[in-house]
Design a protein around this nucleic acid. Structure first.
Length: 834
RNA sequence: GCGGGCGUGGUGGAAUCGGUAGACACGCCGGCUUUAGGUGCCGGUGGCGCAAGCCAUGGGGGUUCAAGUCCCUCCGCCCGCACCA
């Protein structure tokens, strides 16, 4: 026996990687004929520094899926690229003066190097970064398509303004209401900005969730984010100033219970309403405090309700009552119309406010227990009451009606009287894409004093990001400093005009990159719709759950909008047919971070153990959708396992007769045992990969298989059976540890495992002639015996009664019944004899 | 506060449909081999008990012949959202 076989991933892995690179093994043409296709995609990585352990995990999962799909008969598109625009590179540039392009390209080079070292099966011919002009040219084209069809528009919106840096801050740069760098208290500023009309798609984004295979909790999060609610818009009028204030309510049935009226501090009319009155100073003060307060804090303390009376009233359209107006920060400008009718009897927040300010409370819905005959009219007990019941204290035509029925009746009445109408409201807001940043896709618009916002003609795309000397915004976007670039002529009238200096949110880039992969080299169009039709939708999308809302919602919106505009086949309404969300890798129960100094570097890991060990271990530590705790000692176990597989394969190869496939003798008990275990493992791994993503148990099954074929355990098995078992183990572990699997398989068979179809389990070997029958008395296991697999229920009961250990527990007792679970157990239920 | 998860040996985890709790691995203990070994191989390993056996899936209760799995309740932890009218 050759004792000098030594598992050396540093030799094996580069050798096969070279073959794959030389032969372009993972490249896939767009013309795939009639072959079934599959598109496997991991979420686009942001290239910064070098890849972290999360990248290794997501690509270990994705690569396993891609390999499995290939070997089960599909042509697989498995591309990658880089989400190359973004804030960290820009901050780095502000600090060091290094161009963001340079630091980003350096990171990309490092990503390329490590991904190749990991042996991920990527079609590198389709690689791109979103910062390349040949790519963002089409990002700009998509923006213009949306603009031309009314889906992109400008309006004023509030931003976080750092008065010291003279910069707009991202939410994540605001810490406790202060700028992250400057420490200055952040102000609210209104800026004219670009929006995309995602709210037009709210209903379809909601409805089509039913058509995709996504984790239920992600769908729930998206549904809640869109937040559709049905109700009515009701108009309350201020007679003094003759202004109408519409409000949205989900509870028009409680209109008769409205006792006051509240506006959000941001509501543009609040200050106008008190101008020149004695309330002005107090209201102004309150509004200022509300606007500058930490947004999180404003929502936080649900105890203290604060507000100020405006000294004005509005009229309740259903009964003509005058309701006092207030401003209070519990009302949000972003939701509904920024003003509400307050019904303290049936809303908890309104109730708390009414209590704090001594405002009237009127019950208009009785509790369901009360009969119509005895409504508890002035009974404030049990309030606020948010349940259902009959209407009371409302108009005669509605009193006594169940509130659900009354709701519709009241809306109909409002509609007839022209005082309101039924209405649907969404929590979802339009997508603000303007960024006052340098490192992003320029918005391809020219502002002309005469023609307004004019699109850059398609033939002038891309609008290339100009070089600037200073990346720091000084009161405006950094692009404004490139004056030669800014000053241009209007494409429409030829007059002097200026370019838009905002760039786009990087979520725009990642909302369509998956389409570009399909046709990445196309320089005459963003993609060819026929080519996209071949690959889309993505069959399996994989990424972190932190993108459950924004990225995934934006990508869905883009797909629908592009289909509507005729750029995608109509049937492609969803970008990602199936989604898998992976958990984080923790260390000592904590997130890995540079601050904590507990980072595990994939580079070091791969250098020390090889890519196969690193990838397999990450998949082995737990179900990939759950968070997993890293342990250094566990890696050694995986390395030992792969080493054992390779060594056994190398030794078995030495013993194989030259140029001859050895026979297997199923009559030999040890051969039969190995065959059974091998087919069991094939079945187990196949199920784990196709029906669930439990790679940890799939790998465990291969470990079991290998344990069965060690020199001691294999017994008298023939060389053919040993070879088959080891080759099967290599074949099954290939999606997780492609290099060692390939090498071991090649040693044993001379074949390339990736060219072999996925093994299929022979049902004959999955069924054993006997099984272990568990015998219970009163639900407790008392014995186990071998039983024929085809035994009848009576035979199984007979076996149970024949067991001495069972009899010991039933003797002297009365048998009440016998439960038989075929193939599993017999449970004898007894009770003491009378 | 609302929504969604989770809680199993010393550790990571397994138990896929209500049917043998602890697969597989780490760690630990013992042995063999090689000893240059931090290699390799074999065996043991939930707790209590000499044993028969009993007890064990965060705590308590329930349903059931049978509960880690279903129901109620309490505790703890994690994630998301946050006064959504």
């Amino acid at each position: 026996m050759a004792a000098d076989h030594h598992y050396d991933p540093a030799e094996i892995e580069p050798r096969w990687q070279q073959v794959w690179a030389d032969e372009g093994t993972w490249q896939v043409p767009n013309d795939t004929g009639d072959d079934p296709t599959s598109y496997v995609l991991e979420m686009l990585p942001y290239p910064s520094g070098e890849p972290h352990i999360g990248h290794l995990k997501v690509y270990s999962v994705g690569d396993a899926v891609a390999h499995f799909h290939r070997r089960t008969g599909s042509r697989v598109l498995h591309p990658m690229g880089y989400d190359a625009f973004g804030l960290p590179a820009e901050n780095h540039a502000i600090k060091t003066g290094q161009h963001p392009r340079d630091s980003t390209d350096a990171a990309i080079t490092e990503f390329q190097r490590q991904f190749r070292r990991w042996g991920i099966s990527i079609d590198w011919t389709r690689e791109f970064g979103t910062h390349e002009p040949r790519v963002y040219r089409w990002t700009q084209w998509i923006f213009l398509e949306l603009f031309r069809h009314g889906l992109a528009y400008q309006k004023e919106a509030a931003v976080n303004w750092d008065p010291v840096e003279e910069t707009v801050l991202a939410n994540e740069q605001v810490v406790d209401g202060r700028g992250e760098r400057s420490g200055a208290v952040v102000e609210v500023r209104q800026l004219k900005q670009w929006f995309l009309r995602i709210t037009d798609y709210a209903d379809r984004l909601l409805a089509d969730l039913d058509s995709i295979r996504w984790p239920e909790h992600v769908k729930t999060m998206q549904r809640n984010w869109i937040g559709r609610s049905e109700g009515a818009e009701v108009v309350f009028r201020n007679e003094e100033l003759a202004v109408d204030y519409p409000v949205f309510t989900t509870r028009p049935d409680t209109l008769f219970g409205a006792t006051f009226f509240v506006m959000a501090p941001e509501h543009p009319d609040v200050l106008r309403l008190v101008e020149g009155t004695e309330q002005e100073a107090e209201v102004r003060d309150y509004v200022n405090r509300a606007l500058t307060a930490d947004k999180a804090l404003r929502g936080d303390l649900d105890k203290e309700k604060t507000g100020v009376a405006l000294g004005r009233t509005v009229t309740n359209p259903v009964n003509g009552e005058e309701l006092a107006m207030y401003v209070a920060d519990y009302v949000l400008m972003e939701y509904g119309t920024g003003a509400i009718m307050a019904v303290p009897a049936h809303d908890e927040r309104d109730f708390a406010f009414a209590q704090a300010y001594g405002l009237p409370i009127r019950r208009v819905i009785g509790s369901p227990q009360e009969t119509a005959g005895s409504p508890c009219e002035d009974e404030l007990e049990g309030l606020p009451y948010t349940g259902d019941g009959p209407l009371v204290n409302s108009a005669p035509e509605f009193d006594g009606l169940h509130n659900r029925a009354a709701l519709e009746a009241i809306v109909r009445w409002l509609d007839r009287e022209g005082k309101g109408h039924s209405s649907v409201n969404y929590r979802l807001r339009d997508w603000l894409i303007s960024r006052q940043r340098y490192w992003g896709t320029p918005i391809p618009i020219i502002h002309c004093p005469r023609c307004g916002a004019v699109p850059v003609p398609d033939e002038d795309l891309p609008v290339v990001l100009p070089d600037v000397e200073d990346y720091k915004p000084r009161g405006r976007s950094p692009l404004a400093a490139a004056e030669d670039w800014v000053h241009t002529s209007c494409p429409r009238c030829g007059g002097a005009a200026e370019r838009e200096t905002d760039t786009m949110d990087t979520f725009v880039d990642s909302s369509w990159y998956f389409l570009r992969y399909c046709d990445a080299r196309n320089d005459s169009a963003a993609w060819d719709p026929d080519v996209v039709a071949r690959w889309m939708p993505v069959d399996q999308y994989i990424g972190g759950v932190e993108h459950a809302i924004l990225h995934l919602l934006y990508a869905r919106f883009f797909t629908k909008a592009l289909a509507d505009l005729g750029h995608l086949p109509d049937e492609i309404q969803e970008p990602f047919a199936a989604l898998f969300t992976q958990g984080m890798i923790l260390r000592d129960g904590e997130k890995m971070s540079k601050n904590r100094g507990n980072v595990v570097s994939p580079k070091t890991l791969v250098q020390r153990y090889g890519a196969d060990t690193a990838r397999s271990y990450i998949l082995f530590i737990g179900p990939p959708d759950q968070d997993a705790d890293w342990s250094d000692s566990g890696v050694e176990g995986m390395h030992r396992f792969l080493g054992r597989l390779w060594r056994l394969a190398a030794e078995a190869a030495d013993e194989l007769p030259d140029d001859r496939v050895p026979d297997i003798d199923p009559a030999r008990p040890d051969d039969e045992r190995l065959l059974r275990k091998a087919h069991w493992a094939i079945d187990k791994v196949t199920t784990d990969m196709s029906e669930r993503f439990n790679f940890n148990t799939a790998i465990a099954a291969v470990m079991e298989l290998l344990n069965e074929v060690t020199p001691v355990k294999r017994g008298e098995a023939s060389p053919g059976a040993v070879r088959f078992t080891l080759a099967t183990a290599a074949s099954l572990i290939f999606p997780f540890a492609p290099h060692v699997a390939t090498d071991a398989y090649h040693l044993l068979t001379g074949e390339r495992v990736w060219e072999q179809p996925w093994p299929s389990a022979d049902p004959e070997y999955l069924e054993a002639p006997t099984f272990e029958l568990v015998l219970q008395v009163n639900g407790k296991v008392r014995d186990r015996v071998q039983a024929p697999s085809d035994a009848s229920r009576d035979q199984l009961v007979a076996l149970a009664r024949a067991s001495g250990r069972v009899r010991q527990f039933i003797d002297g007792n009365e048998i009440v019944k016998e439960i038989v679970v075929p193939g599993k157990l017999v449970n004898v239920v007894v009770r003491p004899a009378a």
